[in-house]
Write a protein that binds this DNA or RNA. Structure first.
Lengths: 335, 335
DNA sequence: CTGTTAGCGCGTTCAT
DNA sequence: ATGAACGCGCTAACAG
């Protein structure tokens, strides 16, 4: 591994001169510059960022802590974040927590040790302490997707309440009254807000809200299947189903079908979050889609701003409006 | 930012003693250990990996250089790699090259400067030089998905030739004879091999191979659309289409439909690579699926082995067999 | 069981 | 326009 010193020797100059050439800082005569560049090339010199970072306290690296990159929503967020980070000269380390607190804590402390310059953080829970811990190290955090109270950070997310309401309104317009919700865990803000939006839309339309039609699980395919099982134990079925995210919807559809129930003929289904590649092939699920790419992009930009202008102390709560996309998973119901 | 020195002062010991406590190395009396741990906790001490790495020449970080994490195949590979890396104590930095050489080169040199411990590398081209450059720095590389000749590295990939042949055999069994291929660029090994598999299966079945039915583009949705345009300029259409990857298939289906052609009624379609979430909702495309998760997992494991046992010099070429999954995108053709 | 010395590779500060 | 010295935070190597 050749160092700045080796290059210096080869070029017959002092290490600091090599440094100046490499970083384009300070004055270097074009003659010595050329000698240095030649030496660097011959020796395959690659600057050591570790050493540089040790002095500069900057790693040009962001952390992206999310739940599961396998979910197309997060995939797209990740892509947006990486594109934006890369445009600003940052790399990104990604970590899947699977909404698991222990995993998350482990990742966070590893990332802290690695001295990442900032965190793009999708919290697995409502607790503010992870963020507090990070802030104690003086590292900025942008929280994605989920609002947490009592912490001074930026948020980039979409309006879950509004999105849920849009979906429910759509169902109501089609004549549905008995609507069940397959929700995520109540300790995640988006789950609570999507339920809230559901309730609001129902009551606003003068519809009775039936607590027994609220199911709580996880934001996973398996959980979607489980909730169908629970649903089928009821005497009467709702005419429509609201899945609080795409994976729950997938699990629900599978379980419904394997129980001989067709969507939308036997039961209508809407869900939060798009499934891009799927709908490109077969436009099927009616959803509200979040601008996933922009969420990632915007979050990374915000984070980079905080890093480069470390004075910046005004925190933003950027809320995107989800968009209703009507496809073929709902049927009109005769009242 | 509190350092090992601060902790040492607080605990009334030497820095090295703190180091020993933190790393569980060497002898420390449980009395002083406790004092040190208390001091560390009070001061919110977080070890600085940069400093440690500078000495140890290990960053516990892998690079994952792929084409586009937005493609569900790569998403799954990435997840497998991250899970495996994390289990071995490594983080992973991911980079999207979009098959773009310039972007790729930029990423590679950045990652070299960052002193990642190893590369998981999906080459955007056939050239061995990027790998040679990395090896010059003494850093191991595992190449994913695409074989490159003339370099000593591990490969983890699947058998493109065999996969293509399986798909074509399936079509032949259904009576198809005029089959077009929508391929990726010829400078990518998988594209060449998928075409080769196509040819082999055809000739083996005694079918004539029609060069005019070979279309070359990119592994993208847009390219899939473009190739349909080209196809439609022909006087007579083939009865079946072989898309060399999932994104090409998606683009093809869209363009076919917008031109009033239905799959499979008007034309049958098979493709390489699954689209997991899509087929969970609507089992549609007949594909050969690669074990994406295992590819990522296995590659990361191999890489970690090279890193931890730096003596290891036997290189493997691990080839997985793709699996044919018959769904509903093909129709039998009467001869 | 604990401490001293030294150096990993680089860039800031201050000279020349 | 170029260089010397020092220190970023940490841990081998070697005392004691």
């Amino acid at each position: 591994m050749t160092t700045i010193k080796d290059v210096a020797n080869r070029a017959g100059v002092a290490p600091i001169t090599v440094s100046r050439v490499v970083n384009n800082s300070g004055y270097v005569s074009s003659a010595t510059r050329q000698r240095v560049e030649a030496a660097a090339a011959e020796l395959n010199y690659v600057p050591n960022m570790l050493a540089r970072s040790l002095r500069s306290n900057r790693t040009d690296t962001l952390a992206l802590v999310l739940t599961d990159i396998t979910n197309p929503f997060w995939t797209t967020v990740a892509r947006g974040a990486e594109d934006s980070a890369s445009a600003h000269g940052f790399s990104v380390i990604f970590c899947n927590t699977d909404e698991h607190e222990a995993k998350q804590d482990q990742y966070l402390s590893m990332l802290l040790r690695k001295r990442v310059d900032g965190f793009l953080y999708v919290p697995a829970n409502d607790r503010p302490d992870p963020i507090v811990q990070i802030h104690k190290q003086g590292i900025p955090v942008v929280v994605l997707d989920r609002k947490i109270h009592g912490v001074d950070v930026d948020f980039v997310r979409s309006d879950s309440k509004d999105g849920a309401a849009k979906l429910i309104s759509h169902l109501l317009e089609l004549g549905h009254k008995k609507i069940a919700i397959f929700n995520g865990p109540p300790n995640i803000a988006t789950a609570r807000e999507r339920l809230a939006g559901f309730k609001i839309a129902m009551t606003k339309a003068g519809q009775e809200f039936d607590e027994s039609l609220v199911f709580s699980g996880e934001f996973t395919v398996e959980s979607g299947r489980q909730m169908v099982k629970q649903l089928l134990q009821r005497e009467s079925l709702p005419t429509a189903l609201f899945a609080a995210n795409n994976f729950i919807a997938i699990g629900a559809i599978q379980a419904l079908r394997s129980n001989g129930l067709r969507v939308p003929e036997d039961i209508s289904l809407v869900c939060f979050d798009d499934i891009p590649t799927s709908h490109m092939i077969e436009p099927f699920l009616t959803v509200v889609a979040q601008p996933a790419y922009q969420i990632g992009q915007r979050a990374a930009e915000l984070l980079v701003t905080h890093i480069t202008q470390s004075g910046k102390q005004d925190f933003q709560d950027i809320v995107f409006a989800p968009e209703l996309i009507v496809r073929n998973s709902c049927q009109r119901v005769s009242s």
